[in-house]
């Protein structure tokens, strides 16, 4: 009888304690301020002129087609603390509407329709965390990023910009603040993204995205 009581107690302790203990002892999924707090915020809307008369001076410009100057594209991202040093490929949008990523998991994609790192808004660098044939990707260490880690981004003009991690968060894919992660206005931010969280074999995909936000080092 006493053995049976002890058996129930030990069994339940194992059944409940193992997952709880695992949950409590694993490294935290977030670091620093929440991502939503450190992403660029919308600039204030211009104040309405109300019923004021049209301004006397009007901007005019020649309307002939002109070439648009392009800022130098980023070519390489390095994070010495994580042992990451990967080439960057300018990437666009996949047919399914998601950001396109380089097939090679050792390379990282830069969202070429958004700002270049250092311009107003959020420059997005993203890569596959792993691949069935190729193994772990260049950005796999992203999930262990710590506040203060230094990120270096080199561009094709040979300039290197320095960034400092302010936030890491694991965000369910359906809840990503996409408009802010890909913001094209506001303070310059560097956003690094890959996959993380539990793997869902039935979808051959991860449930979450690891999002790391860095600010320029001045």
């Amino acid at each position: 009888m006493r053995n049976a009581v002890a058996g129930v107690a030990v069994g339940l302790a194992l059944a409940v304690g193992v997952p709880v203990g695992w949950e409590l002892t694993r490294p935290p999924a977030t670091a620093g301020a929440p991502v939503a707090q450190v992403l660029p915020t919308d600039p204030p809307a211009p104040s309405s002129p109300g019923t004021a008369a049209p301004a006397p001076a009007v901007d005019t410009r020649a309307a002939a087609p002109t070439a648009v100057p392009q800022a130098p594209a980023p070519t390489r991202v390095a994070v010495p603390a994580w042992g990451v040093d990967a080439p960057l490929d300018p990437m666009g949008v996949s047919p399914d509407g998601q950001m396109a990523l380089p097939e090679d998991v050792d390379r990282v994609g830069w969202y070429r329709f958004g700002p270049v790192p250092g311009e107003a808004g959020s420059a997005v660098l993203a890569g596959h965390v792993d691949d069935r044939e190729q193994g772990l990707g260049a950005l796999a260490p992203l999930r262990d990023a710590a506040v203060g880690d230094e990120v270096l981004v080199a561009d094709e003009a040979g300039t290197t910009s320095r960034w400092q991690v302010t936030s890491r968060e694991l965000i369910t894919k359906q809840e990503l603040p996409l408009d802010r992660l890909f913001a094209r206005e506001g303070e310059p931010r560097l956003v690094l993204m890959t996959c993380g969280g539990p793997f869902l074999p039935e979808y051959r995909s991860y449930r979450d995205n690891v999002v790391v936000v860095a600010e320029p080092v001045r």
């Binding site: 998601q98 990523l101 792993d130 772990l136 992660l181 890909f182 993204m193 996959c195 051959r204």
Partner: peptide
Amino acid sequence: SPSGVPGGSAGLVDDGLPLPLVGLS
């Protein structure tokens, strides 16, 4: 904005409860 960011297909960094611990539980 793009509709999302894909990112992995192998489960090598699966952050769910590890299988041995599931077994123990």
